[in-house]
Design a protein around this nucleic acid. Structure first.
Lengths: 179, 179
DNA sequence: TGTTTATATGTCAATAATGACATAAAGGAG
DNA sequence: CTCCTTTATGTCATTATTGACATATAAACA
């Protein structure tokens, strides 16, 4: 089983979700298209790690809502115990910045402005996410501990927020450099 | 041509390098194995974007040293002008942390300690890199501008250092949370 | 003298991931 | 009533990436 399969199981420990919802919610942690997720869900179902029910909807098309099974949770615990792969980042902008001297300052500024906007939107999404986590929690977020359901999500969104702030700080610093 | 091909061309704008060296030096910005790089170099050579010479070595096996051609530089400029893909990060640890409540606090701490060590080693490598950039530059690094050869590398290593500091800060914060 | 490690280049099968194509239901805009 | 968007699920060809296999040189180490 690949990492994304375990990632889907991870999400399902908190909520039962459709493939479409899983695709949306896994994005901050692992980028994947629906064309990768649907076949994996079918595999997981065949192995007995998840089960699904058809859920009719009146306002939207019907969906298949998946839940994790006890067997799935066991698989998950086994995976967590294994050594963790190192993170992989691939950023086309970094490669472009490396040889930024090939183009003029104006083009460079424009390129970085586009990326800055991307980071700002990302930050906005994390802020909304954090609000949503707070709304679903009885405790104030900074009092959550490992036993609380929202703990994992909270600490990850906190990390993501810190990192995007760092990215934005770098963009500001770059604007000074390119002045 | 894929992004990695342009990445290889980007590196070659600064130095002529062998495939092996390219593999080592592109790691901080784009993770790739030699089995992906060698075929791409052969492609780039066929297209006339790079040229190579055989360089005999007495202390080590002989190597093929690639240089970017004018045609390759034109291709690069065209690529930089195109819209830039959004960055992709895939971090298995994030998926594990999401459902960290499945395992006990001790196992969670151990997992994060391994990652913290990884970040510390990474930071050390960036510090050494920054020293090396300074040694190769006449100006103090904070006075470099877009026209200087080392500018791109400098601003990228600066970014990477800031980000790994953020990661380490998060690790410290997590240790408090798991106390 | 044999073993391991780093350097160096390559191929190829398998896996991971994307992009294009396909279908369909429901809501909203015009 | 038609077009567009969002939700929803799926397949399939292509591309990207990895991991295994293969070979060779030279240094370091035992």
């Amino acid at each position: 089983m690949n990492t994304l399969s375990y990632g889907l199981l991870s999400l399902l420990t908190k909520n039962s979700r459709s493939g479409y919802e899983l695709m949306q919610h896994i994005q901050p942690f692992w980028s994947a298209k629906h064309s990768q997720i649907y076949p994996l869900l079918a595999q997981l179902e065949q192995k007995g790690h998840v089960a699904f029910v058809h859920v009719p909807q009146s306002d939207k098309p019907d969906k298949k809502v998946y839940s994790i099974t006890e067997q799935g949770k066991d698989a998950l615990r086994g995976w967590i115990a294994e050594p963790t792969d190192e993170p992989v980042t691939r950023d086309e902008l970094a490669l472009k910045v490396y040889c930024i001297g090939l183009v003029d300052k104006e083009q460079a500024k424009k390129m970085l402005a586009v990326r800055e906007l991307y980071y700002k939107k990302k930050k906005e999404r994390f802020n909304l996410l954090m609000d949503k986590i707070q709304q679903g929690s009885e405790k104030p977020l900074d009092q959550l501990d490992i036993g609380d359901d929202a703990f994992g999500m909270y600490v990850l969104v906190h990390k993501a927020t810190m990192k995007v702030d760092t990215d934005l700080y770098w963009c500001e610093w770059m604007k000074e450099k390119l002045k």
